[in-house]
Design a binder for these strands. Structure first.
Lengths: 141, 141
DNA sequence: ATATGTGCAAAGATTTTGCGACCCT
DNA sequence: AGGGTCGCAAAATCTTTGCACATAT
């Protein structure tokens, strides 16, 4: 775990005790935890830590690319009436989303069994990248 | 649009003016709108509609399966430290999530060009379905 | 006529932010 | 020593809910 200190230095971040414990909790988690859930785990090591600090460091880690965000649209509900099978392109910068018709990608085949008892109804491909507007914004600087 | 009345009847829902306008706005949208964004659009037809009604009917539509939710984890941030390429299984009932190693699925090939200027960094497959616990809960009744 | 929906406003939940004390380098 | 972080509490967002009146069937 000493390499975490190096990654902090590389990112220009002070390596505080809170950050070490928080990052370790994220490494050990296999369930894509929420901030609240992480807070519970971290409190077992640092009972005095505040939820605000958890949120603040999560944002810091995300901005430095140390961790990833699974829920690209957690900010608010996103809806659709389209019930045809289709996929999505999501811009990781501005979070805009457009449909990709199912014919645009090859069908998906499972090569390994899913966990026991799981039933899949539909495979949705999320193409993560940059939309035209955000891509040109990035190259311009 | 008269068929919307039938779908309401089928779902046991009164077909109010607000619902008709809201549903039409969803049909016409191509951008996976948020509740707030829908509210703006619907207000052009019904200036007196309230944001609460929009939220309430969105929930009603979702529960009846008339529309779909794109953001399965909008409720809160979900994080991961795993930066290996992998996919996700998401339970549409309890929203739990597990990783599926990339080797478990065939590689994804694009057969149609993406919209001009878009850059894809990564394809992530979301397998939507029911986890073991939720699946057995459903069959039991 | 009755059950359900609507508008309004308050409450709940999640996330961000301002402030003074404290820690990392 | 000095800049950034921490804990705390208040503010900002997003969403749900209780209530009295209106609407759909």
């Amino acid at each position: 775990m000493e390499w975490f200190r190096d990654r902090c230095v590389a990112a220009g971040l002070p390596c505080t005790h809170q950050r070490q414990v928080l990052y370790r909790a994220l490494l050990e988690a296999t369930d894509h935890p929420s901030p609240e859930s992480l807070y519970e785990r971290v409190r077992q090591d640092i009972p005095s830590i505040s939820l605000g600090t958890v949120y603040r460091n999560i944002r810091t880690f995300l901005d430095s690319g140390l961790i990833g965000e699974v829920s690209l649209h957690h900010g608010s509900l996103r809806l659709e009436a389209n019930n045809q099978p289709h996929h999505h392109f999501v811009c990781t910068d501005c979070r805009m989303m457009v449909d990709l018709p199912a014919e645009g990608l090859d069908e998906i085949h499972i090569r390994r069994p899913l966990p026991k008892g799981f039933r899949v109804n539909r495979f949705i491909v999320e193409a993560h990248g940059l939309c035209a507007a955000c891509a040109s914004k990035k190259t311009r600087r």
